[in-house]
């Protein structure tokens, strides 16, 4: 019996006990009796505080934080790009720290406080970073923008808190808001339109206004 037949759940369910017997001949690592994938998927109650309001839902354990926000809380500002942590479109703030919401399960955030682009500012009361992106034309198609803005807000906070970066000449010193620092720290947010230079201008503007 091949490893392939063991890990194919449907086959495993049909073959029933025969699989179990054959599996005992395999190394321990290969023994992964699957859950019955035809049964109702396991769910868990999750309580999240999203943009200041608390919500509780029963979610399929597989639900990512990103899908919970978009499909269950209907906050579609946070975008799904690659869904593998490579593009940064899904960046949100969890207890003030930026993460890729696509690479985190909602059930792992029970009790956490989430801020999405909708929670940073409102159309008539923009966050300074949102206003600066508009002023400096820091986007073209806009798809990556919510993630860029959430990341940008967190980057300025990280620099302020002294979190070191790859481009610092001396990690013993406090980092500064330079173009190099912004480029390095924003490398987890990809913009296919190539609005990078204007994003840097927007971030420097916000950092300068605060200084």
């Amino acid at each position: 019996m091949s490893q392939n037949e063991i890990t194919m759940s449907r086959r495993g369910v049909i073959a029933g006990g025969a699989v179990g017997v054959a599996a005992s001949a395999l190394p321990a690592e290969a023994q992964t009796p699957p859950l019955d994938q035809r049964a109702a998927p396991p769910t868990m109650p999750v309580t999240l505080k999203v943009n200041g309001s608390t919500h509780r839902l029963d979610l399929d354990t597989r639900t990512t934080l990103l899908d919970a926000l978009r499909e269950h809380w209907k906050l579609t500002g946070t975008k799904k790009g690659c869904d593998h942590g490579q593009c940064g479109a899904c960046t949100v703030l969890v207890d003030g720290r930026r993460i890729n919401s696509c690479l985190s399960l909602a059930v792992m955030h029970d009790g956490d406080s989430i801020t999405t682009i909708e929670g940073l500012g409102k159309p008539d009361d923009l966050h300074p970073m949102q206003a600066a992106f508009i002023k400096h034309d820091g986007y073209q198609c806009g798809y990556c923008t919510p993630g860029q803005i959430c990341s940008a807000v967190a980057v300025l906070d990280e620099i302020k808190r002294g979190v070191p970066s790859h481009v610092q000449a001396d990690i013993a010193t406090a980092p500064a808001v330079t173009e190099m620092e912004i480029r390095e720290r924003m490398s987890g947010n990809i913009c296919r339109c190539g609005a990078y230079s204007n994003i840097i201008e927007a971030m420097r503007d916000v950092a300068g206004a605060k200084a």
Partner: peptide
């Protein structure tokens, strides 16, 4: 130095 040379800021936070 090794840690800040890897991944992205978002990933390193998690």
């Amino acid at each position: 130095r090794a840690i800040v040379a890897g991944a992205s800021g978002q990933l390193r936070n998690k």
